[in-house]
Design a protein around this nucleic acid. Structure first.
Length: 567
RNA sequence: UCCCGGGUAGUUCAGUUGGUAGAACACCAGACUUUGAAUCUGGCCGUCGCAGGUUCGAGUCCUGCCCCGGGAGCCA
């Protein structure tokens, strides 16, 4: 045990990711006097998904590892898309993930006053100017890749005039979009973000926190680094698409009289997962076009969706820690995530029997009306989980897939003449089957061996297969949703130039059946995850415990055998 | 076209001051098994993007090239 811990520590020390190494180096060099402060800065305009979880655990654990602090800050600089409901949802999701901000939540909007004052400072220093050209003109003047921009005719407006105009902008003298405050940097820069970026725009839109106090709203670039500095952030970690903004982040900070050490930005690659889309735009379309039931549909990669699906926060964290953080653009296989979910539930989930696609099995030599209570293990992985009593009768439900009139090769399950074990109960031998007009098996007839009670034969006879079952007179009804990938393609929307992720939507991503459950399953709490033996892990719905979602199936050797045969 | 990032097993990542490549997941096989699960054991897979150069020796250093991702919102 102690050896294991020791080697884990050694390993962790040797394989720090580049972000952790960056922070550690700063610490050793005393850059921030041993202080580490990070932040998770979502814009409250949507729901968190598993991609955010990567950033969340990185930021929060990074701070913890150094005894530092990490705040939740809402980057609420664009009132047009934001809403207070998202603020609440994000806080709930964060709490569910199990991270706790170091103090009260922060909002970029809390700094609108300070940001405004700093903007006036830049104007006075001749480093910012009011441009009364429209957005289209400004964009055109910005130039292109490899072509320099052209300077705005307003670029050399004297500071006093800029200051007057800026105050008038603030006080409502101009129309929305008619004027902007721009930083005066370098229209020739190779970095587009340095070609006099916009700092303020006029928007007469009420803000979810400041209401109509402001009509002037700072852009992301003008707000972000300054918010970091105000809060005392030391290491500002974001995703790769902001790499080009770093020069601007630094430029702004360089011009100001900061209340603390200057924070620095570093970027890592965002998370991509096969058969999954993490684009907010596409996710929104899925919801709006009704391809899923909502943001919290169990097929959604949102935190709320994963929770409904039965993915535990601890497994999500283990997953994001395992994939690590790098600058390499990468696509992780969903199977890796699923394996963490299985590993987690395998240790703790109670084992229960449930028949998801029921087929009637009648034991012809069973004494009429007789009920036997059999003892069944609650979790072979956990000796403390104990056992439970399960009623067994001559009228049972078994899985449709567990009986074949005409079995394929290597099929171990029930078929006429074959004896199998009904888990924890008896050996049974199929004798006959009732078939309907379409050739579908609607009932299996079998005999049982009374000497095999408990599931083993005194003569040492072996069976090839053990199957789950539910006593029909005792069965509890439930609705079970079994899920397949939401997108059939490994990389949705890739391939053809104009192929869209939605083109790869799986029309059969959810199969809903009416299941038969053993009586103990009536006691499952909403949100609880149990293992339906031989089928997988299933989560009782968070709102209705009579509805189950298949979290993830068990590894399925039989399915692999069939798949191999096909190809 | 210009700038910034990347390119190591199927996938994600390690590879310490240069000494001819590792882990996890996936896959395959065996053992065990009252879940075709779990567990245990073993195995497979690499022209370290390409080509040159420096060196006794390069995934690691140098040069050139190729490929992939991001960047021209008054979005974040």
């Amino acid at each position: 045990m102690s050896d294991e811990v020791g080697s884990e520590e050694g390993e962790a020390f040797e394989s720090l990711d580049f972000i952790r190494e960056w922070v550690r180096n700063d610490n050793e060099a005393g850059t921030y006097g041993g202080r580490v402060q990070t932040r998770f800065p979502p814009e409250p305009n949507g729901f968190l998904h598993i991609g955010h979880a990567k950033s969340i655990f990185l930021n929060f654990r990074l701070a913890e590892e150094h005894g530092g602090t990490c705040f939740l800050r809402f980057d609420d600089t664009n009132p047009e898309t934001e809403d207070i409901s998202y603020v609440d949802a994000i806080k709930q999701d964060l709490a569910w993930l199990g991270v706790t901000p170091s103090g009260p939540d922060k909002f970029a909007s809390d700094y609108f006053g300070q940001l405004y004052d700093w903007a006036e400072d830049l104007i006075n220093k001749g480093l910012a100017y009011v441009d009364d050209q429209d957005a289209e003109t400004i964009s055109a003047q910005r130039g292109g890749f490899g072509q320099p921009g052209v300077e705005s005719p307003n670029r050399d407006r004297p500071p006093e005039e800029n200051l007057g105009l800026f105050r008038q902008m603030r006080d409502g003298a101009f129309d929305d979009g008619s004027m902007a405050l721009r930083a005066k940097i370098d229209m020739q820069s190779d970095n587009m973000w340095l070609r006099d970026p916009v700092m303020y725009r006029i928007r007469r839109v009420p803000h979810h926190r400041t209401d109509s106090q402001w009509i002037l709203y700072p852009t992301y670039d003008w707000a972000h680094g300054q918010s970091d500095a105000i809060e005392g952030v030391t290491h500002s970690v974001c995703t790769l698409e902001f790499a080009d903004h770093r020069a601007l982040y630094d430029w702004f900070l360089d011009q100001l009289d900061l209340p603390s050490d200057q924070p620095r930005q570093n970027e890592f690659a965002r998370l991509n997962i096969t058969h999954t889309v993490l684009s907010k735009r596409v996710l929104r379309t899925l919801v709006e076009e009704g391809h899923v039931d909502g943001w919290d549909d169990a097929r959604m990669p949102t935190i709320r969706g994963l929770r409904r699906r039965g993915y535990p926060a601890a497994a999500i964290e283990a997953f994001v820690e395992r994939i690590g953080v790098a600058k390499t653009n990468s696509v992780v296989e969903v199977e890796l995530l699923e394996s963490f979910v299985r590993t987690h539930h395998n240790k703790s989930a109670l084992r229960r029997m449930a028949v998801v696609k029921p087929l009637k099995l009648t034991i012809t030599n069973w004494p009429e009306g007789h009920v036997v209570m059999v003892d069944a293990n609650n979790n072979p992985e956990d000796p403390d989980a104990g056992t439970r009593q399960v009623p067994f009768t001559g009228e049972l439900w078994i899985e449709q897939d567990d009986f074949k009139l005409d079995p394929p090769p290597k099929y171990y399950r029930l078929t006429p003449g074959r004896e199998v074990r009904l888990r924890s109960a008896f050996f049974v031998t199929a004798t006959d089957a009732v078939v309907d007009d379409d050739g579908n098996v609607i009932e299996v007839l079998a005999t049982y061996d009374p000497a095999t009670e408990g599931g083993s034969s005194p003569d040492g006879r072996k069976v090839k297969s053990t199957m789950h079952w539910v006593s029909a007179p005792h069965a509890v009804d439930a609705t079970v949703h079994s899920y397949d990938r939401l997108f059939t393609a490994e990389h949705p929307g890739s391939g053809d130039e104009d192929r869209q992720p939605l083109d790869d939507l799986n029309p059969a991503s959810r199969e809903t059946t009416q299941a038969k459950l053993e009586p103990a399953l009536a006691d499952v709490a909403p949100g609880q995850v149990v293992q339906f033996e031989r089928l997988g892990y299933f989560a009782a719905d968070v709102d209705d415990a009579r509805v189950f979602h298949r979290t993830v199936g068990l590894r399925d050797e039989w399915a692999n055998i069939q798949k191999r045969k096909k190809s």
